[in-house]
Simulated assay, not measured.
Amino acid sequence: MPEVIFAGPEGRLEGRYHPSDDPQAPCALILSPHPKAGGHMDHRIPVAMYESYKRRGFSVLRFNFRGIGRSMGVYDNGQGELQDAAYALDWLQSFNQNAPFSWVSGYSFGAWIGMQLLMRRPEVAGFISMSLPVNTYDFAFLAPCPASGLVTYGSEDPIVPADDVDRVVDKIRVQKGHVIQTHRVEGADHFYSNHLEEALDVIEDYLDENLDPRYSPPREMKYLEG
């Protein structure tokens, strides 16, 4: 898990990068929760996402948004953080120029940033959005959504009510041939307390179904919550 420092729009950004052994492996970018709510790249959910793609043979990067850890800058209400994500994807792709496609996965605030990023980057072939904050941010920018993906959310989330997620996702238009799937994790809160393994099972199943079999490791190798 090499520590990396790369250039961002406001100075250096701090990350953790796993390069694939395959020079033609796809890429995955992992986006963290809200910087003002203690979000950082070593949060257990971004780490779990990172490890999942790593096991699948992807080159994968997670990083701290500006102002967190050793990343320079200050919080910029999402606009600057979207720029950070774009710079991170650029850096990742600069070392993986033969990658056939990229995926973006984010949790909460990071899921919102990820959905904006995929609108700007046609090489993003799929996404995973956990606890998408539909009651905090406007998702009208998805007009239409250019990639298929999965949205997971908890039935007992007091921060983003499950019915709000259903309502917003149902209204999102997608480009022809693409589908946004949703999965309500029964009993889970916003943080998947005591339900993270169940949520990850759903994500692993989705990735197995939507990726080439060569990117699907044996099920016994899956992440287990400790």
Rank of each mutant, 00 (worst) to 15 (best):
Q97P: 03
I180Y: 02
P2I: 11
A99T: 01
L61R: 04
D76E: 14
M221L: 14
M221R: 06
N210Q: 13
I30S: 08
V185H: 02
I180G: 10
I45Q: 11
C27L: 07
E197C: 04
M41P: 01
E197F: 02
G80A: 04
L118I: 08
Y50R: 05
P144T: 11
L13M: 08
S94P: 00
L142V: 05
R214M: 09
L29F: 03
L117M: 12
R214G: 00
R55I: 07
V185I: 15
Y215L: 08
R56F: 00
L92M: 06
E123T: 10
V47W: 06
D166E: 15
A143G: 12
F58R: 01
Y137Q: 03
D170W: 04
F58D: 07
D21Q: 14
V74H: 11
G177R: 01
P100S: 14
G57N: 12
Y53R: 04
R121K: 15
K54W: 09
A28H: 11
H40S: 13
R214I: 09
I172E: 05
I45D: 13
G114I: 01
V104Q: 04
A99K: 02
Y75V: 11
F141L: 12
A143H: 14
R16Q: 14
D208N: 15
V60M: 09
R56A: 04
M72T: 09
I159H: 02
L142W: 03
S108L: 02
G126E: 09
Y206F: 13
T152H: 00
P19W: 10
E197S: 12
S155H: 05
E198P: 00
V4Y: 08
G80L: 02
D201I: 07
S155G: 14
D84L: 10
G8E: 10
R184V: 06
